[in-house]
Design a protein around this nucleic acid. Structure first.
Length: 881
RNA sequence: GCCCGAGUGGCGAAAUUGGUAGACGCAAGGGACUUAAAAUCCCUCGGCCUAAACAGCCGUGCCGGUUCGAGUCCGGCCUCGGGCACCA
């Protein structure tokens, strides 16, 4: 064995060994419990970043650990290969997106292999492969026939100069990112998935995912946004003008609103509509000021945070509606706090019981009418703030005295009798528009025929292949200019027809890849019976940024596939782990134009004070100070990213993996630290040295004679006890997926082993301890640092390969000690420590505690009230104060 | 504004769910080895008081409460992250 640790050499050897022996090939085996461990697949952007390394290390640690527990593990990897960046790169480099994408995949596959992840590469897939997207098209045609997919108009960003549709991220401050032209809103036909039909199931299913983070479930619940409420119709009051377009899609004589607080209906003092509401447009026709106000509303801030702090503004339309019960004439206002996209785009305003309405009414001098009182007590009059709690109705005529539920039902009956409303469930969730006017995506398998309409492409004509040799020029969708692509014939009537040139949202591909991995090679269907063997995914790992869209769409797709009989079960992912971000320190100077110029860490020298605190930093090139900008997410724009490849080249994959696991628990953010990386490397060097130092007798087969530990020197028995105690803690932490303390446990084991008294002629038990301790240590580390442990395990012939070695077991007998140390407290304050025999009776423990000098000092002159004994932990003497 | 999190040494963090606060590591300081450097090894390392202490006091964002005992539970505040589509 080599005296020194050479990571690059042993890592290449281990990786070659795994590949040659197809160690990670997953085979269906009904005799063993299956475990499907999946990390979110990457977009092939060109190179791995630290976020990938963290994500995939966490997944690999879990997969390898489960394998050592005896499970039959599947851990696949693939590529989320369609998307906008490939088109941008194509334009820049004049290379077709397909070529660019496949080149990137080759590079990144090599990087993943150099990190030693235990993937079954025989199941690799890329979503831009026709063998993959063919089945997506197949499912699309089925769902289209079923009505789960339908066509309707959708609003897009239109760049009038480039004559193209822009993604939201391509719109910068209202202008096209390339042309700089003012972006227009345009309505075009698009295909939609009817995800709202599954809203209830998607919401209820969250309650059956106990191993998902609460935060993610809360975000999905808010996104689906189910509320029970009432649709209320307000008839229009007679007016000099009529509104032919008012109340689009419904009756022309009423203004519809949706409310979750029908109990406050008698407190309505005005009605407010969104700026985009048809009624607003109608009223503005002869009202220039209103028209100007509506334009202003449309321009205003778009983010919620901006809107929340923004001043409430409105303007009366001059129109009125009639209250359904009181017959009162109520003014209709346009208000900037009403959203067109939710409910009816109109609200009934109850200033007394809604904070926003209260603020608005106060500003514009609209009346406030209290109709709810608390169950106990009264409100001050006049109201100084909205009372938003549910309570008892008052000032509400025949509804007085009812509570929320009572009022809800009585109001509904009364509204139904007048045909002016009914209860209903409102979701925030909207149907999922999947049409993209882009080239590098999965073609939508529809043919437009003048006679037959939208005809799905028949199975025997699938896949609709995307031409792969095109370089887009940024103006419009190249497919729409490619007659060879769009000219076709109608599958129904055989006449000339036009193929759909839109492609699908890339979220569609990533919504079912987890299922395809089970049978990636099947040409007979989307999935085959192997999907029923492996699904659901037992553990899914990825970034919190996918908490809503990706995870919701994948859950939706699983239900669609279930309803097609393709998979069983209701949910795709049993456990979810959302890993934290990778952060690093930033250094910058503010330039004259006010913009920050960021510097790489290697360009600056940090100055520290005597305690090691960072006090200042200087730029190496000019020696002048730079600002220490704090810890932020790694990004190109802040020059604080660290390239994983450099790290691997310098220290090896094991050091990179060890540091990632040790620096923070998986779900928390992780701060990059060069010194921390060196610390991880130092530990691996010490591990190597510990094995090397004992190699002579280990390789001679020593340490396997099973001595009786009672004969061993007490130091050796103590070391062994510490090792097994630590192993017990490691097992607990592994169950919690708290890998940072697993690493700390491994470090403790090595520290303990180094303390075991050895020497030229070691006492009985030494070789035994080293053999047993190193055997445990290597296995505990194997999931985290697979290469060095693979190498050392083989070096000493511990038996077989460490990937398949059984996870070590705690020897309970090693934990037993003759004596134990207990902490003694007086009134809960620690004041000493006693050593008693392990089996000591309570009376003996109390006596020993009372005899302790510390106790005597603290309890002197006070009266004993009580003695609390926590077995194995402490004794608390309670005395009078 | 609303919904989630989180506040513990110079730093990253730990504390097996109410029982010794700061494990493990990093940084820093001191020492050994070396011609020297790197590497390695040993010692110190929350604060205050003290010549020193295995003597005492304080200490887990702040204020209060429950308890024999609170980083952990409860109430009220403060600060910092993350998410958001003013959701009627």
């Amino acid at each position: 064995m080599d005296e020194h640790y050479h990571p690059n050499k042993i890592e290449q050897e281990a990786q070659r060994y795994w590949e040659e022996h197809r160690v990670f090939k997953a085979r269906e085996d009904s005799a063993r419990e299956k475990y499907y461990c999946l990390s979110m697949f990457p977009y092939p952007s060109g190179r791995l970043h630290m976020g990938h390394v963290r994500n995939y290390t966490i997944g690999d640690v879990i997969a390898r650990y489960q394998r050592m527990l005896g499970k039959n593990v599947l851990q696949p990897m693939g590529w989320d290969a369609f998307g906008l960046p490939a088109e941008n790169a194509a334009m820049q480099n004049k290379v077709p997106p397909a070529r660019w994408t496949w080149d990137n995949i080759a590079t990144m596959r090599g990087q993943l292999k150099s990190l030693g992840f235990g993937y079954d590469w025989e199941r690799e897939l890329a979503t831009c492969d026709p063998g993959y997207y063919r089945w997506e098209q197949w499912l699309f045609t089925r769902l289209f026939k079923k009505g789960v997919i339908y066509k309707k108009g959708g609003v897009v960003n239109w760049d009038p100069v480039d004559q193209t549709v822009l993604a939201n991220e391509q719109v910068i401050e209202g202008r096209g990112w390339r042309s700089g032209a003012l972006v227009e809103k345009r309505e075009i036909p698009m295909y939609y998935f009817r995800i709202t039909a599954y809203a209830d199931e998607l919401l209820a299913g969250l309650d059956h995912l106990p191993h998902w983070p609460e935060q993610v479930k809360a975000m999905q619940r808010n996104w689906i946004g189910k509320s029970r409420g009432m649709e209320v119709h307000f008839p229009y009051a007679p007016s000099p003008r009529s509104f032919p377009g008012a109340g689009e899609g419904g009756s022309k004589e009423v203004l519809k609103v949706f409310t979750t607080r029908p109990d406050t209906l008698m407190g309505v003092t005005y009605v407010a509509v969104a700026a985009e509401h048809p009624l607003a447009a109608q009223a503005a026709a002869n009202h220039p000021q209103l028209r100007a106000f509506i334009e202003e509303c449309k321009k205003g801030g778009v983010t919620e945070a901006e809107l929340a702090t923004q001043e409430k503004k409105g303007m009366a339309t001059g129109e009125f509606v009639i209250h359904p019960f009181s017959g009162e004439k109520l003014p209709v206002w346009v208000a900037n706090y009403v959203l067109m996209a939710y409910g009816e785009g109109a609200v009934m305003a109850v200033p007394a019981h809604d904070e926003r309405d209260f603020e608005f009414a106060a500003k514009y001098g609209l009346p406030v009418k209290q109709v709810i009182r608390p169950t106990d007590g009264e409100l001050s009059s006049p109201l100084t703030a909205a009372y938003t709690e549910p309570g008892i109705l008052c000032n509400s005529a025949e509804f007085d005295g009812l509570d929320f539920e009572g009022a809800f039902h009585k109001m509904e009956d009364a509204l139904k009798a007048k045909k002016l409303g009914a209860s209903r469930i409102q979701f925030r969730l909207r149907d999922w528009g999947v049409s993209r006017q882009r080239y590098w995506g999965c073609p939508i398998p529809i043919i437009h025929c003048a006679a037959c309409g939208d005809v799905p492409v028949p199975d025997d004509q699938l896949p609709v292949r995307l031409p792969e040799d095109i370089v887009p020029d940024g103006s419009g969708n190249p497919l729409a200019k490619l007659s060879g692509f769009y000219e076709t014939t109608c599958p129904q009537c055989g006449k000339p027809a036009r193929r759909e040139t839109d492609t699908m949202d890339t979220f569609v591909e990533s919504s079912w890849y987890y299922a395809r991995y089970c049978s990636p090679d099947t040409t007979g269907g989307m999935v085959d019976e192997r999907a029923r063997h492996w699904l659901p995914v037992d553990q899914y790992i990825g970034g919190i940024e996918h908490a809503i869209l990706h995870l919701l769409y994948a859950r939706f797709f699983h239900k669609l596939m279930r309803d097609e009989g393709l998979v069983t079960g209701d949910e795709p992912f049993t456990r979810l782990l959302t890993q934290g971000m990778v952060l690093a320190e930033t250094f910058y100077r503010v330039r004259e134009n006010g913009k920050k110029e960021y510097f790489f860490p290697h360009e600056v020298t940090v100055e520290r004070d005597a305690k090691g605190r960072t006090v200042a930093a200087r730029l190496n090139s000019d020696g002048r100070p730079v600002t220490v900008g704090g810890i932020e997410t790694m990004s190109k724009s802040k020059n604080n990213g660290v390239d994983p490849q450099e790290l691997i080249n310098k220290y090896g994959a094991d050091t990179a993996r060890l540091f990632m696991m040790f620096a923070a628990p998986p779900e928390q953010s992780l701060e990059w630290s060069d010194a921390g990386v060196q610390g991880a490397y130092r530990f691996l060097k010490r591990l190597w040295a510990a094995v090397f130092d004992n190699s002579s007798f280990l390789s001679a087969g020593a340490g396997r004679e099973n001595i009786d530990w009672k004969d061993a020197v007490s130091e050796h028995a103590a070391v062994r006890r510490e090792i097994h105690q630590t192993l017990s803690q490691i097992n607990y932490d592994m169950g919690k997926r708290q890998f940072n303390t697993v690493v700390s446990g491994a470090m403790k084991i090595l520290n303990a082993l180094e303390r075991a008294p050895g020497g030229k002629t070691p006492a009985p038990g030494y070789s035994q301890i080293i053999h047993e301790g190193l055997g445990i240590l290597l296995r505990v580390l194997a999931p985290i640092t697979p290469h060095i442990t693979h190498c050392l395990w083989r070096e000493f012939n511990f038996g077989g390969d460490i990937v398949d070695a059984p996870w070590p077991e705690v020897d309970e007998s090693a934990l037993i000690s003759d004596t134990m140390d207990l902490v003694v407290q007086v009134n809960g304050k620690r004041c000493g420590q006693i050593r008693v025999a392990s089996g000591a009776a309570r009376a003996a423990v109390e006596a020993a505690a009372l005899a302790d000098p510390g106790v005597k000092r603290h309890a002197h002159g006070k009266q004993l009230k009580q003695v609390i004994v926590v077995p194995g932990k402490l004794v608390n003497i309670v005395v009078t104060e």
